[in-house]
Simulated scan of single mutants.
Amino acid sequence: MSETGPYAAHARPVESTSAQRTHRYLRLGIGGTLVVILVAILLTVPTVGWLPSLSDYFYTPARNVFVGALVAASLALLALSGRDPERAVLDAAALFAPLIAVVPSVIRPGTVPGVEVECAQCVPAGFESDVVNGVATYLIVLAGVLLLGIVLSIRGAVRGAQLSLLLGGVVFAVVMIVGLTLPEVLLGWAHFVATVLFLGSIAADAVINAFWRTTSATPPRWLRIVYVAIAGVMIVDLLALVVITISTRDAVDAVFPWILIGEIVALGAFVAFWWLQTWQRWDETDPASLIAVSPRLPPL
């Protein structure tokens, strides 16, 4: 008995196009960056132990992998951003990922073996020059991308990017102004804020895929329900992370690693969403296509 329907192509091999292969490799690459980060962290655990958060492994030998994987994921997200509302949220995620990479989390004295911390909770002074270099590079590159995007939009080579360009301009202005006038605020909060906004963007993408048309075929009802569930988990987890981070920020003694647990839950939800969406879009001829019908999907 042969399979029919929009997802029947998953049951038989089909000849892929160059655009399909590029789309598939980029999607697999983003999922792979998360695996790479986790592998690097696990290889570091025997040396430094379990730290209060995944972000704290920036100060360990896992740093190069952590930074490189996030920058690579940012480029892939930008390339996969698609159209309309999904484009805006994935472009936002691509904007925030490099900030997570170049501005590390604040840590307490004794948190990371071998790393001296001069205050109750901050980015160690020995890493500040690295942050300055990273943020300056980020701003220069972002300015170039925004300028190129504006030129291409004016020429008509890129369409529908106005919201993404506006968001990029706002992020550029905020990071530059805060970095120049309140560098201690940038050092203390940029990593946390960028992480929350990045994961929030992914949660928003899950909601969009549940209720709006982002591919030619309508996703199965069960898949849309799973997307809503994943978005709900991410939103609740993010709210918990915000509350825990703020409430324990000034704690003198070590606290239970709730932040580490929350980050693992968030990454697990991200991985689940990403691989399900990759399966959903695997055989799309134009992976970001929208057919000429209402963009709103039928009710669940």
Rank of each mutant, 00 (worst) to 15 (best):
H23F: 15
V89I: 10
M1T: 14
A40W: 00
L166P: 00
V243Y: 12
P220H: 09
A157C: 02
V112A: 05
P61I: 10
A203V: 09
N133V: 11
Y138W: 12
P13M: 13
V67Y: 04
F198Y: 10
P299C: 04
P220C: 13
A272G: 01
R213K: 11
W50E: 07
Q20F: 05
P46F: 14
C119H: 10
I208M: 06
V207G: 02
T214Q: 12
L34K: 00
L78H: 07
E284G: 09
W282D: 02
R155W: 07
Q20H: 01
G179F: 10
D253Q: 13
E284P: 03
A206F: 05
L90G: 06
I264K: 03
D91Q: 11
P85K: 13
P220Q: 09
D253M: 12
D91Y: 13
V243D: 01
L51N: 00
V175G: 08
V103K: 06
G179C: 12
S53I: 04
T214D: 03
G160C: 07
A254Y: 11
L90C: 07
D283P: 03
A9D: 10
T181H: 06
T17K: 14
S294N: 13
Y59D: 00
Q162M: 00
E3H: 11
T33W: 08
L267K: 03
E263T: 00
G262K: 13
G82H: 11
V170M: 14
H10M: 02
V171G: 06
F192V: 04
L241W: 06
G5F: 13
T248W: 05
I177G: 00
T215D: 12
T285L: 14
G188N: 02
V185S: 08
A125C: 05
A194K: 01
V112K: 06
A19I: 00
G156T: 03
A217H: 09
L77I: 00
V178I: 14
G68T: 09
A231F: 09
A62R: 03
E284Q: 10
F172H: 15
A69M: 07
L80C: 12
A204D: 01
G126K: 09
V141A: 07
P219Q: 04
T285I: 12
L199K: 02
V243E: 02
R24C: 01
V39Y: 04
A62M: 04
L238R: 04
P298L: 11
L300H: 13
A88H: 06
L180H: 08
V36W: 09
S247H: 08
L75R: 00
E15W: 12
V106M: 09
R21L: 15
A72W: 14
R83E: 05
P61G: 08
I235V: 13
L139C: 13
I208A: 02
A101F: 08
P52R: 06
L267R: 01
I202S: 03
L300M: 11
L95R: 11
S129L: 14
V45F: 04
L267W: 10
A92H: 01
A101P: 04
V102A: 12
D283E: 09
A194W: 04
V178H: 13
Y138T: 12
A251K: 05
G29V: 14
L239K: 02
W50Q: 09
S164A: 15
M176C: 11
G168S: 04
A73R: 10
R24W: 12
W222A: 10
V36G: 00
G134I: 08
Q121A: 14
I259Y: 02
E3L: 15
E3T: 14
Y25I: 15
I107G: 05
V36I: 11
L152Y: 00
A204N: 02
E3Q: 05
